[in-house]
Simulated scan of single mutants.
Amino acid sequence: MSGSTRDAVLTVSGLRRSFGGVRAVDGVDLSIAPGEFVSIIGPNGSGKSTTVNLISGVLKPDAGEILVRGKRLRPGRPEAAAAAGLARTFQNGRVFGGMTVRENVDVGLQTTLHAARPLRGLADIPVLRWVSLLAEVAVALAPTPGVRAERRAAAARIDAQLARFEERLTPRADQSAYTLSYANRRRTEIARALASEPQLLLLDEPAAGMNQAETAEIGRQLADLKAQGQTILLVEHKMELIHQLSDRVLVLDEGRVIAEGAPDAVLADPRVIEAYLGRSRAGKAVIDA
């Protein structure tokens, strides 16, 4: 692992999750330093997406600990992960088809709102959750100056994220997401995740289903994010992106970490080649980056 627990944006220790008799994630350790771009690779079924789902709270681990900036994250609570500064995209892109592109991106801002969610701390207390909801309804119906200022700031942040994708999203800001091309839906999902200015951006195969030109474009945009200091955890099958962007690569096979290090060294590791190609084909092959 890289970096200390105190300084790391994310620290994962002994993460485990089984489904029936299958151990999908088996003792994964991971640490990501501020501004670091870390990629997780591995053959199909190796546990990559399950690891991201555990970190982001979509799934609850059977064992292990997840720390964000040294603070323990409540397991299996996606809202807690979001509040701690984690934002993600999904392997199978998820946008709200009946909402506009702008409204989809606005969803990503919800964890950053204060004036519009005046009692949001009560949302974690079941018997008082309704008080938080009533307070939000009240300020929505009769917005205070603070709420109006917050909305103006949110609109500017939405425009900034749409502009990141230039002509792809900005001209379509008020179109329903279901009318978008597949690639633009993926871009909308990334813009939504970035709207909260996350401590850690988790991307689960953002280039899946994209053609070569679209993949190259998303690669340039991720490179810009990296240059701006965004901390990123990427799951991806396209090795050109892994090689181009990663500071460090973690390789999973059957839920376990089998290699970790710089891209060139990892992609030439015999254990990694064997995991992808099988022992009989591995030989002296090198994974094509």
Rank of each mutant, 00 (worst) to 15 (best):
N44A: 02
A80H: 12
I287V: 13
S18H: 11
V127K: 15
T89I: 00
L113S: 11
G121V: 02
G255H: 03
A84V: 10
L245W: 08
N44G: 04
T170H: 12
G64A: 01
L15P: 09
A177G: 09
A115H: 14
I158M: 02
Y178I: 04
S280G: 05
D253G: 11
E166H: 09
R271H: 12
Q91I: 00
S2E: 13
A163R: 14
V28Q: 09
L162I: 04
E205A: 05
A173F: 04
A140R: 15
R256V: 00
A213W: 08
A191H: 14
A123P: 03
Q212M: 11
I41S: 05
E189S: 06
G209Q: 07
V9W: 11
L54V: 00
L141T: 13
G261C: 06
S176C: 13
A123W: 00
D26G: 03
Q244K: 13
L30A: 04
R220G: 11
E274F: 00
P263C: 02
A160C: 07
N44W: 01
G278A: 06
R74I: 01
V9A: 12
F165A: 02
I125A: 09
Q161M: 14
A268H: 10
L277S: 09
G20H: 11
E166P: 06
L162F: 05
E65A: 12
V38G: 11
I158P: 06
P198M: 03
D224L: 14
G108R: 03
G20D: 06
T89Y: 02
N92E: 15
G70R: 05
F96R: 03
N53Q: 07
V131T: 11
A183C: 13
L162R: 06
E197R: 07
G255D: 05
L277C: 08
G3Q: 04
D62A: 06
G57C: 01
G21K: 12
W130G: 14
G261P: 06
E79W: 09
T170R: 15
Q199T: 12
D247P: 05
R168I: 02
A8H: 05
A155L: 09
V251R: 01
A156I: 00
L200F: 10
R117G: 04
